[in-house]
Simulated assay, not measured.
Amino acid sequence: MRIESPREAASHFTPELTALIEDPLYSERVWADPRLSPRDRSIATLGAIVALYRPDELRAQLHRAVDNGLTLEEISALITHTAFYGGFPAAISASVIAHEVLSPDHH
Rank of each mutant, 00 (worst) to 15 (best):
E100R: 10
S76F: 10
P24N: 06
V96E: 12
T45S: 13
W31Q: 10
P15V: 11
D56Q: 13
N68H: 12
V96R: 10
T82L: 04
F88D: 05
Y53W: 11
M1D: 11
E16D: 12
R29W: 06
A94G: 02
H107Y: 12
H99W: 15
P6G: 02
E28H: 11
I79S: 02
V50C: 04
T14M: 14
A32G: 14
T45C: 12
I21R: 03
L72V: 08
R59S: 03
P15R: 15
H107T: 08
R54V: 07
D40S: 13
A51V: 02
L52A: 07
P6W: 01
I97Y: 01
M1R: 09
A19D: 07
R41A: 00
L20R: 13
F88S: 06
S103Q: 11
G87L: 02
H63A: 09
A44C: 09
L20P: 07
L36D: 07
V50L: 04
V96T: 09
L70Y: 03
L20W: 14
S11E: 08
L36T: 08
S76V: 05
D40R: 06
I49S: 00
I79P: 00
S37P: 05
G87D: 03
L36S: 12
D33S: 07
D67C: 08
A98F: 00
I79N: 02
P104C: 08
A51G: 04
H99R: 12
L62N: 00
N68Y: 07
E16V: 12
E57M: 05
Q61T: 08
A51N: 02
L25Q: 14
E74G: 00
Y53I: 02
L70W: 01
A44H: 11
P34F: 04
A60L: 03
E74K: 00
S11P: 03
L58T: 00
V96M: 09
A77T: 12
Q61W: 15
A48L: 13
P38E: 02
A32Y: 15
P55M: 04
G69H: 06
P34N: 05
L46N: 00
L70E: 00
A44R: 15
G87Y: 00
A98G: 03
I92M: 09
R64E: 07
V66K: 06
F13V: 13
L58P: 00
D23K: 12
E100D: 09
R39T: 11
W31M: 11
L46W: 05
S37H: 05
G87I: 01
S37M: 12
S95Y: 05
A83D: 11
Y53L: 04
Q61Y: 12
P89W: 09
F88H: 06
T80I: 14
L58M: 06
E100G: 04
